[in-house]
Every structure is written in C-alpha cells, then in structure tokens.
Design a protein around this nucleic acid. Structure first.
Length: 471
RNA sequence: GUGACUAUCGUUCAAUGGCAGGACAAUGGUUUGUGGUACCAUGAAUGAGGGUUCGAUUCCCUCUAGUCACCCCA
C-alpha cells in the first residue's frame, strides 16, 4: 500500500533582504537560523488540524466528477437541492441519533456559543434535514418530497485513510411515503450513481431492523441467548453484552461468529407490517436485478432507523470491504422531533471514500477544458494592452492562458509550449503601436500579423482547422 | 478512546554520532523579439521540544501528525 507521506511544519521563511548575490561567506558559516528579527514573531504551526485536510487542485478533478454525477442523478430522480447550516442546536442530534451511540457520546463536536447556546457541528445530515422539514412546513408539499444535499460533516474520530474529522457527504432523502418501492428506488439511485462513476465490485447489503419496539424484543432475546453461552464469546463481546449487544453480530472473532450464527435473527422478531414491508422491498430489488445480499448482522450506528437499512460496499481484490455509503428508513424521526408523523427514507454517500475508490479503481477524473491559446506580451506598452486583449478574447469564448508576470518572450513561449496550446498571440512594442498582433500557429510554426479587430477570427480559424485535422 | 509502525527540499529517493546528496519539479540563463533537446546557474529539507554527547538529522524521552489494526462509521 502506498504510504502517503505528508509534509508538516513550515517555519516562516524569512524574506530575503535583496535579490543580490549571497554574501561571499560560505554557506556553512551562516547560522542555520538567522538572528531573530527585531520583532519576535510567534511561530505558528503551519499544519491543518488533526483529521482535517486540504483537497488540493490535483485531486479536484475526481471531486468535480463525483459532484457532477451526483447532482445530475439527483435531478434525474426528481430531487431538489437543499443546503443546510453546518451548525445546529446540539439537542437535535442528541435526540435523533441517540445518546449511548458512539457518534453522540464520543464523536460530536460540541460547544457553547458566545450567546450561551449549546451547539454542535453536524455529525450527519438527517437531523438537520428533518429540522428544516418541520421548520418550513414542508409537510404540505406534494409527496414524496425529495431533497438532495451535499456538504461537510464533522466527527471527532481518530483519523485514517478514508476517515476524516471533516468529511463530505451527499444525501438523498424522501419524505412522506412509506411504500417499500421507495426503499428499492433509493437503492436503484445509489447504484446508478456508483455506476455512472465507473465504480466496480459494488454490492448492497440490506436488512430490516423493524421498529424500536421489536428491536428491543430482539435485543433481549439475543442477550438471553448469548448470556447462556457467555464463555464462548471473546473478551470484548462479553463487555458488549451489556453495552451494545447488537454489535456482537459484527464481531470478527471466529468463535463469536460461530456462536452468533445460531443466534436468534432480527428478521424473526419483526412485526407483521415490517415483515411484509421487507418482503415487498426484496421483491422490488429482485425486479431491479441489483447486486445485493441480505445481511442480518447489519446494524447501523444511528438509533433513528426503522425497518429497511442498507449499506453500499465495495470489495477490492484482497476481499477487503469498504463502506461507501448507507442509509435506511426513519419513519419515526420527524414525529420524534415534534412534527406530524411522516415516513421517510434516505441514504448518504461518503464523497471522500468515493474519491478514494475512484482513484483505487483508476476511474477517469473530470477533465477541465484546456486553453488552446496563449497570449504573450513584450514591453510595458504591450503589457498594458494585453489585459484588454485577454478580456476581449475571453468574451468571445476563447479559453486563453498567459503569463503576464514574465518578461522575456522566450520564457513565455516555453510556457505556451508546455501548456500545449495551439495558438500563441504575440504583442510586442511594435504591434502595440500598430494595433496589431502576431498570431502564431504552434503546430505548423507559421505566423502572421493581423489587426486586433481581426484577431478573434484569426485565432478561431486556426483552432477550427486543427479540429478538422484531428477529426 | 486503545495498540503498532512511521516522519529528510514542492515530490521522490539517498546518507551520516562530525559541512545532509541526487533525481524530478520550479525559476533564470546559453547575445539583445519566438517553443523542443542539451548545457549552465539559482533557490529549496532532517515535524516540534527536551535529554545523552565535545558534537545529534542519526541514540533516548515527550509532543504533534500520518498510516495500519481495534472501536466506530461515510
């Protein structure tokens, strides 16, 4: 695995006094750290916060492609974009995600504002979405109400690759209908997105966790079963027995897997309606011919889910599993926040992981249109004119590059060449005076002088000719 | 939150208890207004703080950060 090295701290570099040659003194005698300047500057760590990262230009083409695909898919499926604040009253998360969950107990960014409000950086999107739904009375809109959202979330985790304290998610949510066909459509949409992104080896895992009541019954039954054979569990799972018994189903220890294989299954404890819902859901899924499997061990980390839950996973050649996203029904959530009872379903895709997966599987990133024209200038007068020329060309739809800061024509030509432009426009002292410009075809190397009025046409002519040649 | 491993120019790879070096990238140049190659030059690093030592980038400790495995999740 390629270990990504990251440079860390930078000391403030002292500006060089003058461009003049370094004093004759040999390097070694120069003190490594020169004497402090008169005003002592406090050294600040030039380092992003832990778990936070910069998404640099190099990586942006992947993100751009992901964003484009997501936003197109959302429109095709009739979702409307909504943007929510990153900060909310803390209690909406404590209430919805559930106290006792790791997200709330250990991972939430919680603080008091100057005004004394207890607020939290959003650790997930759904709670804020429901708050907005209620606040703006969206219940009166025609059902289902489909909302699409994309933005950063925050969790105070211990970072690793594909897991950051600030990470990006795209969320698709539908409110107002409980029909299981929506559950299937949600998965269809998720599949559509990963397909359009060109991701391979995708699988869905689905499960139903029923209602909070049946879940409690099931949990009791599970504990009862496991308690009777406690010795066969691993050390951690013995602790989980009281803290979070459902998690035992996820344990990777062989003995726990063996034991839980015969444990009661959540599906057996579903109420009649949930059972029917799940059955229908699976029928629809079969109809769609999507790659899915039922994972009765799938338990999601949020308390608000009811009935359908699912995850989108990608498997690499070593059989390793990555969760790219997940979701499920949350039919009680709006009600629990004080709104009208409103069924809902949603899912989230983790953009950081999607991008990681795109790179892993060598998906083509989005390619930014490249400039085909370079504008070179020579001399003060031409330099002034070139600003205007640039604007003129850009207005006429010519994507243009320049390097105004450079002096010599040679270095500008070098840049033009490196950029692979088809045309270079050269404006020097003479051309500036004559209101003309030299148009050079970089492929053939020929050039001609044209008036600045005819410049746009002349440039476009060459580009067009090249297009025909290439076609 | 737990454990393990790691940290050298922008990137990448060296080296050393005694002046930290190369490659790539960058910038300028090889006669004054034209691209490639080649050549030359110029900047640029031992994550931070302590300790051991005559001397530490190298050995030790702490911190910070990353990666991995847990935990959890997207």
């Amino acid at each position: 695995m390629a270990q990504k090295k990251t440079s860390m701290t930078k000391k403030d570099k002292k500006p060089k006094a003058a461009p003049a040659k370094k004093a004759a003194a040999p390097k070694k005698t120069a003190p490594k750290k020169a004497a402090a300047p008169a005003v002592m500057q406090e050294e600040i760590l030039m380092q992003a916060l832990r778990g936070m990262r910069d998404i640099l230009p190099d990586e942006q083409p992947y993100w751009e492609r992901a964003r484009k695909v997501l936003s197109h898919a959302s429109q095709e499926y009739g979702f409307q974009r909504i943007d929510l604040p990153t900060l909310e009253y803390a209690h909406i998360y404590l209430r919805t995600i559930g106290e006792g969950t790791d997200i709330v107990d250990k991972e939430i960014y919680l603080f008091n504002t100057r005004g004394g409000d207890r607020v939290a950086l959003r650790p997930e999107m759904t709670a804020g979405l429901c708050r907005a739904y209620i606040e703006h009375g969206m219940g009166v809109l025609p059902k289902p109400i489909k909302l699409f959202s994309m933005g950063p979330l925050f969790r105070y985790d211990r970072p690793q690759e594909g897991r950051y304290r600030e990470h990006w998610q795209a969320n698709f949510d539908m409110f107002g209908e409980s029909d299981p066909i929506l559950d299937a459509q949600t998965i269809q949409l998720a599949y559509r997105v990963v397909q359009q992104l060109g991701l391979k080896n995708i699988e869905f895992q689905v499960n139903s966790i029923g209602t909070p009541e049946t879940r409690r019954d099931y949990e009791k039954a599970l504990v009862r079963y496991l308690e009777s054979q406690k010795q066969k569990l691993c050390q951690k799972c013995r602790e989980r027995l009281t803290s979070n018994p459902l998690r035992i189903l996820d344990c990777k220890e062989d003995k726990c897997i063996q034991l839980t294989a015969h444990a009661p299954q959540s599906l057996d404890y579903l109420d009649v309606e949930s059972r029917e819902h799940f059955k229908k859901f699976l029928e629809y899924l079969d109809e769609l011919e999507l790659p899915y499997s039922i994972n009765t061990r799938l338990v999601r980390g949020l308390d608000y889910y009811t009935r359908t839950v699912f995850e989108i996973r990608s498997t690499d050649k070593d059989g390793k599993n990555y969760s790219l996203g997940g979701g499920g029904r949350y039919d009680r959530l709006i009600e629990s926040l004080g709104g009208e009872p409103t069924p809902a379903i949603g899912f989230a895709l983790g953009l950081d992981r999607i991008v990681l997966e795109m790179k892993r599987t060598q998906v083509k990133p989005y390619e930014q249109p490249k400039p085909k024209v370079f504008l070179a200038q020579l001399g003060e007068m031409a330099k002034k004119k070139s600003l205007k020329l640039f604007a003129e060309l850009e207005k006429n739809g010519v994507l243009i590059a320049e390097s105004f800061g450079r002096g010599s024509l040679k270095s500008q030509m070098r840049v033009a060449n490196r950029l692979g432009v088809e045309v270079t426009i050269i404006v020097g002292q003479k051309e500036a005076l004559d209101e003309t410009a030299i148009v050079k075809d970089m492929v053939s190397g020929t050039q001609e002088t044209v008036t600045q009025e005819r410049l746009v046409d002349a440039v476009k002519k060459i580009i067009k000719a090249n297009q025909i040649l290439n076609a």
